[in-house]
Design a protein around this nucleic acid. Structure first.
Length: 341
DNA sequence: CTAGGGTTAG
């Protein structure tokens, strides 16, 4: 293997190690700028991509400027990383300016990645009208939208509260023979549940089965949340058992959804019961689980229970956070509660 | 090497 290929492999291994920090990446890139002969652009891309994954978006544009100063030529991948960073920094407008450069180099099959990235940028800014018309433009110009393109827009619509439009897009992609993935179904089911359109959500759940898409713990947890939101405890509990029959174990989030809902409805006793059940089943609670229980115990004036839960938390090496302290402070200052303790 | 989600607590 040649020296250059070896180097590229070294960079790749380092970036994929999962333990790389921003400083590692920056110093690696810095030394690469001084290396002769120049490492390939893909090695630079790899590092810029890593910095992006670490969410240090604002570092990328100046780094690319110093690469340009050092005479290193960007390729489409480099520019896509740059656009992605601009989008995540809320500067989708800068992203579109870079698009002009890419289009000057001619259209390529992978241009759809650039366009999908920009679509995400518009969604992040909650400019859904612009996002929809940009999507239509992409279609009009004949770019082959793929599952990710649809997924990006569907997620944006769901998060902005427009599930209706999201459902229309789901149908559109089916017409275009693009198979919706599990993540798309999970996104829409979650949005429907939050809008209390449980029937619609269950309809999609059924449709998933027909399409041989296997629901995961997120799908089930989302539906449990939906049932809880309507106070349908029996159904929520039933689904918890049903997922087990499908070989999917409820996790800490699934249990916390149910526990929180029971707490909110004043069913503290049942919540504690479920809390104990999850422990017996080997699922460890997290700070959100405790938060729900502590809030409920404060609300019902059961200070001893609150203290017991706090102790329990510290035994499990979980620190209380601002949410938990808020519940306790609220209790201590209301109705002279602080005087009693 | 570049694009999407990820369900929970006040």
């Amino acid at each position: 293997m040649g020296k250059a290929a070896n180097f590229q492999k070294l960079v790749r291994n380092k970036c994929e190690s999962g333990s790389i920090t921003l400083d590692n990446a920056l110093s690696m890139l810095k030394s690469m700028l001084q290396t002769q002969p120049r490492p390939s652009i893909s090695s630079f891309n790899q590092i810029l991509g890593t910095i992006t994954k670490l969410k240090h978006y604002s570092h990328v544009p100046p780094l690319m400027r110093s690469m340009g100063d050092a005479g290193i030529k960007s390729d489409v991948v480099t520019l896509n990383v740059l656009i992605n960073c601009f989008c995540n920094m809320g500067r989708v407008d800068f992203g579109f300016a870079v698009l002009a450069n890419i289009i000057k180099q001619g259209f390529e099959a992978e241009t759809i990645i650039t366009l999908s990235t920009l679509l995400k940028g518009l969604c992040l800014k909650q400019e859904m009208g612009d996002a929809l018309s940009f999507f239509n433009k992409i279609v009009e110009m004949g770019y082959p939208c793929n599952e990710v393109t649809y997924g990006t827009l569907i997620n944006g619509l769901c998060k902005s509260g427009d599930v209706g439009e999201a459902l229309q897009l789901l149908n559109l992609m089916k017409k275009g023979r693009i198979a919706p993935s599990l993540r798309i179904y999970n996104t829409i089911i979650d949005a429907l549940c939050k809008e209390k359109q449980l029937d619609e959500a269950l309809c999609l759940f059924k449709q998933m089965n027909e399409r041989k898409i296997v629901a995961d713990v997120v799908t089930y947890s989302t539906l449990v949340h939906g049932y809880c939101g309507l106070g349908m405890w029996k159904e929520a509990r039933g689904l918890l058992d049903e997922m087990g029959n499908h070989g999917i174990s409820p996790n800490v989030v699934t249990f916390t959804i149910l526990i929180a809902a029971l707490c909110k409805d004043g069913k503290v006793k049942e919540a504690i019961q479920l809390f104990e059940e999850m422990r017996k089943r080997g699922v460890e609670p997290n700070v959100s689980t405790y938060s729900s229980l502590i809030h409920a115990s404060c609300d019902s004036g059961q200070w001893e229970e609150t203290m017991r839960l706090l102790e329990d938390m510290s035994e499990h090496k979980i620190s209380a956070n601002i949410v938990i302290f808020n519940s306790m402070i609220k209790y201590l200052f209301k109705e002279g509660g602080a005087l009693k303790h």
